[in-house]
Design a protein around this nucleic acid. Sequence first.
RNA 1: GGCGCCGUCGCCAAGCGGUAAGGCAGAGGUCUGCAAAACCUUCAUCCCCGGUUCGAUUCCGGGCGGCGCCUCCA
Length: 470
Amino acid sequence: MRLFNTLTRTEEDFVPADGKTVRMYTCGLTVYARGHIGNFRTFISLDVLRRALRHQEGYGMRHVMNFTDVDDKTINASQQAGVSLREYTDRYIQAFREDCAALGLESVEENPRATDEANLKAMVDMIGQLTARGHTYESDGSTYFRIATLPEYGKLARLDHEGIQAGARVDSDEYDKEDARDFVLWKATKEGEPTWDYGCGPGRPGWHIECSAMALRLLGDGPIDIHGGGIDLIFPHHENEIAQAEGATGRQFSRFWVHVEFLKLAHEKMSKSLGNVYSLQDIIDRGFRPSSLRFLLISVHYRKQLTFSFDILAQADAALTRLTDFLARLERATEGEAHPAIAERVAAARAEFRAMIASDLNVPGGLGVMFELLREMNAAIDAKGMSADDAALIRDAFEEFDRVLGVIALRRAEDSAPPFPADEIDALIEERRLARRNRRFARADEIRKDLEARGILLEDSATGTRWKRK
RNA sequence: GGCGCCGUCGCCAAGCGGUAAGGCAGAGGUCUGCAAAACCUUCAUCCCCGGUUCGAUUCCGGGCGGCGCCUCCA
């Protein structure tokens, strides 16, 4: 498949180095607060990438996504909460897992956390390698990376460091660095902070070292196939990851770099530091469903900014409802024999969809293919009915699409968990059926209205009445 | 100051050299006890100005507008 590589700023053919299994690392969440929907745009986009590689391209996956569970924010927040760092970050890891499940993310092969011993040791080892190769220096007990020792520094972000000029917000660090561009690998212990000592002196890891070290520890020697994350990580985080991994090993770190654009709110990016964030729970509290959010977040190409609003969330919800209504209609198709024309049309749509996804994950284009097929198949049902065999073919196609998108199955799982017991709904539908047969329409309409007030919509058809969540 | 992205129908959004996919909303119709669902019809010349080309929404240049990175951030 074709994939845009930030390293080259071009779309390239992607194949895993060994031809079989994709070794992918994606930056996860810093677990000092609940993830917001901007974070989840990135995670969902990378989930679609993972699904496409796995289910469409047929590769095996070795996918690592970390939790950053030690940094200034996690430390400060845990101290304010009066609990240990571990206990505090456990809470948000748990919350993150719940949100991921609600949003239909596939679980990945490894979710390392920075403060696990094996990982801290890997970081210290890597710092040792960097020191052996002359890339580090010490200052006040902290260890720094000396940018000047790595001529290639800046190749990912394409920053002209010689030319940092007036107007740039240059780092004014309280630490004693030789060069403003240098960054910390290991921070010396401060009073009251968690500390570890595995060979770099007592302290804690700098932010960037964890990803370099854990990626190579869990995925094996570089280059790994893909490294991904939000676009804001290009600099400094990913640039520094490259410096660390390549400085330590002398080998390329990652062949492909994939970055997901921002989610914006009104006219600015959504970020915790700006405070303009919505969590998944906020979305649910407004009466929307996680599946609708997932649909919205994948319906704009991952490399374009997406401006969130509840208005477009409602549009996404309506579109997704149409999709599941169609699939439900298919369940009732039982008439006649198979139509060869349908098989042909479905095969063509499958090919078109695959081509869209293989083209740098053109999910919006893929959705277009799906809805075109949907309309034509609806028309076919209206025109001459549809056999169970035809319906099965169509259903298979949508299941194939959804293995990549992961949104229809999610919606259906939500639908099958009604706000109150399904038995009760079925009983009321039966009562309404009898009322209608006896032409007691007032009672029939009353049942419809009551159910609607309780979040259940009814749809009558020749083959009976079906219910769905509002 | 440097680097980069974006501007397509009321809203969202693909396409990116050969004459504008799709979704949502709207209008008219078919169907229907009601309500939905569904179908049919209808609904854009692509921010502006130049240039290149037989031909540009698509390439180049210049505007205007929006956003990002150069600091923690998905």
